[in-house]
Design a protein around this nucleic acid. Structure first.
Lengths: 231, 231
DNA sequence: TGACATTGGTGACGAATTGTTACTAATTCG
DNA sequence: CGAATTAGTAACAATTCGTCACCAATGTCA
């Protein structure tokens, strides 16, 4: 590391090409799935993430909603930025800068449009390197934030059984959870409320349906947790 | 909500102007402080965040390091994106899109350069609306991630006392922590190791110095926590 | 009709973690 | 020396968590 000349920068904007790349996630067949669209003929890969440039005056999340809707047929319920990339990796539209956005869609959402298809996260086809990175970041962000943010509820229809909810958590966390503990913790969290409806799915006792209805929490904050330092 | 025509988007990149806005954070005088630089004469506000456009081929975090170094005189230890903004709010350089990046700098770092100054988070001068938003997001992200990521250690010199560390956590969390609980939790986390050195600061018993040295954790993962849903 | 398989739901108990009190240790100040 | 101040910890109480065991409500099938 050598000395840096002690002159202030004269800041100035610079023109670049920008794309919004959307990772639509949904639980399909007991796995987290990503929505991909067929790439134009002649592209290096057969599939890409849904992407486009934001229109003038259009916010990034608004652009993501438009882009996802075009592939899914309906707008996802939730969007979250997962990072902006500007490195050497190739983008299918040669954008200099990509804004990666994760979108969550309930399992019950309609089938995707003609040129789009769900792929399980573990079995994706080849993607442009930039898109591959965006997918990995989206998965990591969603998995990491699942207990800070009501992400899991955005992957379920408006009413759901507690077993459904637990299954989504297990999908996101990648491990089994204990039924009684899960329910006790959920109870204490005041995040859901029961409805009058019951869901009967063939065998077994019918399950009560719940809806996401977070209430004010008792203010008792806990000490620090040095947990979860996964890196 | 009306019907959307069922035609696929033809994605294309679009040229925009891009800026990287850096929020350098450091504990100063028992408060989290932000580094601001004097704006050019004639600007609407007297101060701005350090910002610039990334150079061609320069990664966003690399750009943030360069921009922060120019204002601080030395490179911060840690960078984290806090979101990319593209809304109507005014940017001092009229950039369409801003990438907000939080940079953490230890309390011991040298005094800033001539045109730069530390301001406590709670008492910032007027900033361009876009910069105001970036600062708020940076503060929120840092506060929210403090127990998932070793952020607190980046706000301290390489060796520090446990009281110093606790003070940083209290600064970030905005509440007092209990000494014995804090130390017990830290012990169990295997994140720090003692050094041979001791720090004497005038009155009171000297404190042992520790360094950040995370070790592999025992794999026992816990159940879900529905905690921290602050929204 | 009546076992039994299957899924939903909960009480209760011991283990582990966390909050708190109260103490000891090492230093400076006067 | 004793008071003040900061560091560090043992130990106990309160709470939370993991688990087991069980009951409930439904479909299946002999």
């Amino acid at each position: 590391m050598r000395d840096r000349p002690n002159v202030p920068i004269k800041p100035a904007v610079r023109r670049t090409t920008l794309a919004v790349d959307v990772v639509v996630l949904s639980p399909r067949a007991d796995a987290l799935a990503v929505l991909l669209v067929r790439a134009p003929v002649g592209a290096r890969e057969k599939w890409t993430l849904p992407w486009d440039a934001p229109q003038p005056g259009e916010g990034l999340e608004d652009a993501a909603a438009r882009i996802a809707s075009a592939a899914l047929g309906t707008a996802p319920a939730y969007f979250e930025q997962v990072g902006t990339l500007s490195d050497g990796r190739r983008h299918p539209g040669e954008a200099d800068v990509s804004v990666g956005i994760a979108a969550l869609s309930p399992a019950s959402a309609d089938a995707p449009m003609e040129e789009a298809e769900w792929f399980p996260l573990a079995g994706l086809p080849a993607l442009a390197p930039r898109h591959r990175t965006v997918v990995d970041r989206a998965a990591a962000v969603v998995r990491q934030r699942v207990d800070q943010s009501p992400l899991a509820f955005r992957l379920l229809p408006p009413t759901f059984t507690l077993s459904d909810l637990q299954a989504v958590y297990e999908l996101l966390l990648g491990r089994r959870l204990h039924k009684a503990s899960f329910r006790r913790a959920l109870q204490a969290s005041y995040l859901v409320e029961p409805t009058d409806e019951w869901h009967s799915e063939g065998r077994g006792r019918p399950a009560q349906l719940f809806r996401y209805a977070p209430r004010k929490r008792r203010g008792a904050r806990r000490g620090v947790r040095f947990d979860l330092f996964t890196e």
